[in-house]
Design a protein around this nucleic acid. Structure first.
Lengths: 197, 197, 197, 197
DNA sequence: TATGAATGAGATTTCATTCAT
DNA sequence: TATGAATGAAATCTCATTCAT
């Protein structure tokens, strides 16, 4: 399996660094090869083409989110607590890796539509986990049972994503992780059962 | 003033159509010129360069959002109602113009970072209006007075934007405007005063 | 006759200024028109095309050289003195008009071959006057009767031209006119030591 | 070193041919590439840009002049004989290569000022050799010790250059090399009759 | 596996010239 | 005569990908 070959990860990490430092449009294959310490042609022994590097990069890094969140979901926290953990994890991973944050929030969005659709389908697995939390919350009576799962998922992901992007665009000059609690609160309020109307 | 000359709008509208139909990276100046019914060189009598077309396009169309929302804000609706109107307007404008929706949600995001920052500064005016609604809601006691305005704004814009993008990516196969009420409800719940905890 | 119409000289003078200030390749017709205070289209009422402006400019300015030299030739100076006068005049005219010097020595040489050939044919009249002086010198026994007139003319013009060009390229930081005497001396006497003076 | 790679000279020679045949302004990179038998992009592996091709071309060919003249200078000819050898060499090199003559005398002068200044600084090495001959002649008492070296150099180079240019413009229809002696004679002795020989 | 020299398609922008007013 | 908005042809350079070694 290609993923086990040493240069596979080497090239992906080089891509993250090069894209973060030079920007998506200045991240030529030759620059990535140089950063990875391999020849240009070697890239093509591990990846079908440049787009494949980016998708693989996204798949690889998305695991960092999915593995953790899967753990939380399997655990016996309440749905609201699971959501908090998920948001915290999302913020922590990106706050811990500046390059990755820049790449996922800013640079990778400059790609063509075709690539974006492929990235979206990688993202789907993550979003499905969000859906599971929402459904569990509704079933357990913690969230309003009349919620539109898709809309709520969009609210959650939209809010989280916009929060991270704004943070990156502001040069990460405030603490992202500490925003997890208030963001969670805003979302939970939105999902919460109406006490009395 | 260039904006009053007939070909200014003509070229911008042509750009929207061409970008929507062919995608950002296939929207060559010559294609836009042809669609606008002018010579390639004529484009440069109205716009400094290709990037300038896109920024102008965004500025021009952003007015469709800002003017309406400014009206609502000036009116005597409650903050919650103003927010609903804003969301409705946002969805209506984009639902009514397929090309524009594709361009703003998908194509214009493929531009380089530099252009995106310029687009963001145009967007700022719109976001400021959202801030005004949030603040008014907090002052009038309709929203929780302890809210972090920036976070709430990010939630609102993030949710609305994600909702529209998902709708566009799903080929607009369901009704966007009817999502205004439930999206608004989700947001209001998030902002609402805690009745009892 | 077009040359008598007021805007003819106005446009030529504008061309000299614009070319001197912005360089040949940045001397667009629209810039010349603006400097001359006329509309772009007006240029074409006086000149067939851009090339025609330049040739006319050269013809016009070449008169400054030819008229004077014709006078000297008609006078009763010795051939050697006539040559000195000619060189002096050449240097004086260019030293007195910085713009003209830059245009003739540097900018006008960047034109395409076709234009240069036309300019050369304008120059021919001037070179013919040089030939007359040489021939007269030979006939009067002041110059060696075995001289190849064409070669001598090339030496004279080549030396004079190279001297002016070097002076312009050195930002005209020394006095050009005072070089007339030694240049004349070199030409008349050559480098060889006079066996007896 | 790039100069040792076979395609470096191949491209330069192709440039000389293409420029001579089609003229400077019609010497597109793609034409040069085709003539050199390489792909357009290959040009840019050897040269920074189009201007770099021209400067390199000039540097490369200038060696043909400099090497020979350096030899003569090192030899034990008299200064006057060295000068004759230099002029002869200058004429021989250009007479032997029609394309090169057209390129250096006509086409390369149509370039913008910036490039011309760079070419001039390459030329400087050659002119320095001329200066050496002049100084040696003055020291050895062969030339007038009161000469202004710069002026003499301008006379020599101006005369030689003008002679070659005229020859090229006249379609090289007479023998250039046989002009070396009379040109040398003119320079050495001037037009003045020797009072005693 | 690994290399890296070579490939070649493709698009923005300028500016001399025209022509309807 | 005079205007100036509109025209449209034309060329440099980049960079993902290949393939002979």
């Amino acid at each position: 399996m290609r993923k086990n070959r040493p240069k596979y990860k080497q090239i992906i990490d080089a891509a993250v660094v090069v894209i973060a430092q030079h920007g998506y449009h200045q991240a030529q294959v030759s620059k990535i090869a140089k950063q990875a310490g391999v020849a240009d042609g070697t890239i093509y022994l591990y990846f079908k083409n440049k787009e494949d590097i980016l998708i693989s990069l996204f798949e690889e890094k998305m695991q960092l989110f999915i593995e953790k969140v899967s753990e939380y979901i399997a655990g016996d926290l309440s749905p609201s607590e699971k959501l908090l953990k998920m948001i915290e994890n999302h913020f922590k991973v990106l706050a811990a890796d500046h390059h990755l944050a820049v790449v996922t929030q800013l640079e990778l969005r400059q790609t063509n539509l075709d690539l974006r659709l492929k990235i979206n389908s990688v993202l789907k697995e993550y979003l499905t986990l969000v859906d599971q939390i929402i459904r569990e919350g509704m079933e357990k009576g913690e969230f309003d049972s009349g919620l539109d799962v898709r809309l709520v998922r969009q609210m959650i992901f939209g809010t989280v994503d916009e929060t991270v992007t704004t943070w990156v665009m502001n040069k990460e000059k405030y603490d992202l992780v500490s925003l997890a609690a208030p963001v969670h609160q805003l979302i939970i309020n939105g999902c919460g059962k109406k006490t009395a109307v």
